[in-house]
Amino acid sequence: MVEHRPLGNALTHLILILGVALVLFPVYVAIVASTQGPGEFLRGTLPLLPGGHALDNYRLMWESGLSRSSAPPAGQMLWNSLIMALAITIGKLTISLLSAFAIVYFRFPFRLFFFWLIFITLMLPVEVRIIPTFRVVADLGMLNSFAGLSIPLIASATATFLFRQFFMTVPEEMLEAARVDGAGPFKFFKDILLPLSITNIAALFVIMFIYGWNQYLWPLLITTDPDYYTIVMGIQSMTADEGNTPWHLVMAAVVMAALPPVLVILCMQRLFVKGLTETEK
């Protein structure tokens, strides 16, 4: 800091505390709401202090869910979300590592063409090709399946670029030494490239897990069978009944839906920041 001003410091902390309060407020309200009994909301405004029904609400949502909204138990939806998020993450990482390896360590015709083909996916988010993509998945018989939930989302230009960028910084001598020692492409990839990339892989894993977990439009399109509902998308069906939404239960589901990715960020903050600033989108 350039100069020391006691008043300025107080103001700094005041602004930050207000900022943190603004950021925390909606989640605090959700947590408080999820601990209330069913009658609390009829009395008007929500109380600002936790009630005593947390265990009941969470257990009810985890085990049986909201029966009249046709959403399955939250436990099952969380499981579905986990499978989808992991499938998307691992799929993206695997195929991006392989493509980057091919683009950097081989010379072959149409290399540039493939590079641009992968690049184009950046410009075609699901949101702009909703119906034709749905048709393709329907024609392939992949509606209501984990394959349909994950495979169409695993192409990744960002990850491919990032790994290409990183492979370019790996010293030439690594490859030369490996070749001299008689290592083939697979051995080189497995024993040298993968261990070197481990921090990048971990950072991307964090970002992509959050991306996969938070998918909304895609599960909404291709799942009609509640057995495949994911939690982020399932919550929307619970609030559809305007007027008598059981908000204490919905908020319990909201907290459960938000917790896993938030925990990932809090536990792996350094990797998260690295992943975010390196992928830049």
Partner: peptide, 17 residues
């Protein structure tokens, strides 16, 4: 090595677009 990425891109990105 490129096939998985390219196939997914062609089927679920380029063709629908």
């Amino acid at each position: 090595l490129l096939a998985p990425q390219v196939i997914v891109t062609l089927i679920f990105f380029i063709w629908p677009a």
